[in-house]
Amino acid sequence: MKKMLITALAIIGLLASAAAAAPARKMIQIKGSDTMVNLVQILAEEYMSLNPAAAMAVIGGGSGTGVTGLINKTCDIANHSREWKPKEMDQAWEKGVSPRFFVIAVDGLSIIVNGKNPLEKLTMAQVGALYRGEIKNWKMLGGPDKAVSLYGRQSNSGTYTFMQEHVLVNKNYSTDMKEMNGSAQIIESILQDEGAVGYVGVGYLYDKDGKIRSGLKILNISKEPNGQAYSPLDKEAVDTKKYPVARPLYQAVNGRPSGEIARFLMWETGPEGQKIVEREGFYTIGGDYQAQNEKNFK
C-alpha cells in the first residue's frame, strides 16, 4: 500500500512541478467593457512594448463580465463603462473584494443614424422615447415617413445599462430593439438601414485614417427641448458636460493597486497614455477625474 501511496503522491507532485514550470511572469488579466476593449488593448500593447517584463491579456465580454471577473478574482483589472450596481458592491463585500476605481478616458456616447436621415439633432427625451418604443416612425420627429429600426447592445454591456439609466430614465428598452454583440456590429447595421438609430462610444466613429466613417450621421443632442444641442465630437462640450450623454470609462482593481498594475494605471492616466486615448478618438480625463484617481492610488 505504501508503494501505491508514494506513486500517487509522485503523480500529484509531478503535475505540480509541471505547472510550476510554466512561465513565472505574471499575466495581468484585463476583462470587461466592449466599448473599451480596443482602446485598452492598444494601451496594453504600447505599455508592453515600453516594458518588456510586463505581460497583459485584454478581453471584452461587456462591463458586467469584467465586474463579475473582479468579484470572482478571475481578472486583475475590470474595464467598465458604467458605475457598479449596489448588488455588485454587495457581492464584492461578500467575496472580500474592495474595488478601487480609476477613470482612464471620457466617452461621448454617440447617437448615430444612417447618413440619408435628414435629422440633425434630438433631445434626450426624444432619444429615450425612441428606445422605449414610444416613437415608431421618424415622421413623429419631423423626419421622413420611415419606420424606426432600433439597434443597441446586449444586457451585460455597460453601454446598455448607461443608456437605460440616463436616457431611458430606468424604463425598459423596446422589445423591437435588436441587441448587437458589439459597437462595430451596430455601425455596420446602421450603414445598411436607412431607418436605423444606434448608440456607440465616440472612439468607434472613426475609420482607420482617423476620419468619421462615411455613411454615418452623428446627431447633436440637447438636454432640454429648447436647449442648445451639442455634438459628441465637441471635446469642450463633453468636458463641460454640456453634451448630455458623456460618461467616464473606468478601470477597477481589488484594493490599492501595487506593482505592475499600479505602474500600468499610472501610465494610462498619465501624459503618454492619455495621448493614446485621444488618438483613438476618446477624450482625455480632466482635473476632477485626475484628483479622484490620485486619491485611489493612495
Binding site: M1, A8, G152, S155, N156, Y173, S174, T175, E179
Partner: peptide
C-alpha cells in the same frame, strides 16, 4: 405591463469523470 428587451439565452454544459484507484485493500 413592462416591455422587455430581446431575451438573452445561454447554453452550457459541465461534465466530470474519474479514474479511481484504490491505494488500500
Amino acid at each position: 405591463a413592462q416591455t422587455a428587451a430581446t431575451p438573452t439565452q445561454t447554453f452550457n454544459a459541465a461534465v466530470y469523470f474519474d479514474y479511481r484507484y484504490y491505494l488500500s485493500n
